[in-house]
Design a protein around this nucleic acid. Structure first.
Lengths: 206, 206
DNA sequence: GTCTATATTCGGATAGAC
DNA sequence: GTCTATCCGAATATAGAC
């Protein structure tokens, strides 16, 4: 197998693939994530519907590619950012970015953070991208003094809550984006207070 | 129109309707909310598929009935509870109930709190039930000293975040239910602190 | 109110030529 | 890699008898 023509082919193929994914996002935004159809998608990219099977083995496989694409966007989004060295400020900026990222695209938020498509489960390769992202968040949390699992659970709840409210009640806006700093402040003050009084993890059931 | 037989008919009809909704929830839990079909539903309640149109004008109408049913369940769930007179304790118990309610039924959580079904929009009558519920939450917040819109927005983010993480990462469990008290504590301490220093609502963009 | 029968449309997927 | 042709099944919805 020669490499030169194979490279060129691969290039074209990947360009086409990116095109398809871009149109798929656009259609999902227009009609809803679950209402996306391969026929509409083929029309949008100038192909016949069966030709899409050259790129995806099934419709769920397309969702998987979108899932991976979304996390790549997210990784690029935060990877490009230079966060402050002060850990608290870095965490605040990070949260603000995440909430903004959700606000920017409702269906992307749905696919990445909610379980909305029946039967869809990300592949291992796609899920690895999600894990890569969460490890960034963990590092920032640790740097800011977050130690226990309970603290991390509280933090993830805060972030997902801000993102959810933003997307659900002010899509495209900044109403909850703007509250991010305040919420992180509140969270870190609480962590600080609990470490100080050395009373942690004593949450009781009822 | 005589009333006696009409009442009996209505009784039977409403019993059947409740039966249908119950089976619809069960199927949604099994296959996913969006994967619910009228055929399966008819089978489950011992009817032929077209007969469902006696009870619902369309499939979206069925979703609307489920939406209303879900909020009625929620109203009954919190309405039966006697919350403590101490406002902070009441708010904590309320949040715990909400997160538990989400944990108890993933698809109900999806239908009530997420926009997952393409084309579905609750009717005014159904949405009124949602508003009725939110007014209960508002009253509890006010009693606990929550004053500004920003504070209310933070609170709703906290609650929805706890519910979302619970449903997404520990459905049926209590991992985030247990953190509810801690989070409400953290929130009220923050409100208190801000009222004390009289520095509120100065969140800045960037 | 429930049924049978059926219309209609749609959508994912496959076969096989070019 | 793209096409034509087609299959197959599924799903909502309607018509009209009982």
């Amino acid at each position: 197998m020669t490499t030169a023509p194979s490279d060129r082919r691969r290039e074209r193929r990947e360009a086409k693939l990116a095109d398809i994914l871009g149109e798929a996002w656009a259609l999902a935004r227009r009609d809803g994530l679950a209402a996306l159809t391969l026929r509409d998608l083929a029309d949008a990219v100038g192909l016949r519907q069966p030709s899409l099977y050259v790129y995806f083995a099934s419709k769920l496989d397309l969702y998987d590619a979108l899932f991976a694409d979304g996390y790549r966007q997210l990784l690029e989004y935060v990877g490009r950012r230079r966060y402050p060295t002060e850990p608290g400020a870095a965490l605040t900026a990070f949260v603000k970015d995440l909430v903004q990222f959700s606000s920017d695209d409702l269906v992307r938020h749905q696919l990445l953070f909610q379980r909305t498509i029946p039967g869809f489960e990300p592949s291992q390769a796609s899920y690895d991208l999600a894990l890569e992202f969460y490890s960034i968040g963990s590092a920032l949390m640790e740097a800011a003094g977050v130690r226990t699992q309970a603290e991390m659970d509280v933090f993830t709840a805060l972030v997902s809550g801000l993102g959810h409210q933003q997307v659900a009640n002010d899509p495209g806006g900044k109403r909850w984006v703007r509250l991010s700093g305040r919420v992180v402040e509140m969270f870190l003050a609480d962590v600080e207070r609990r470490h100080g009084t050395d009373k942690e993890g004593v949450d009781h059931d009822d």
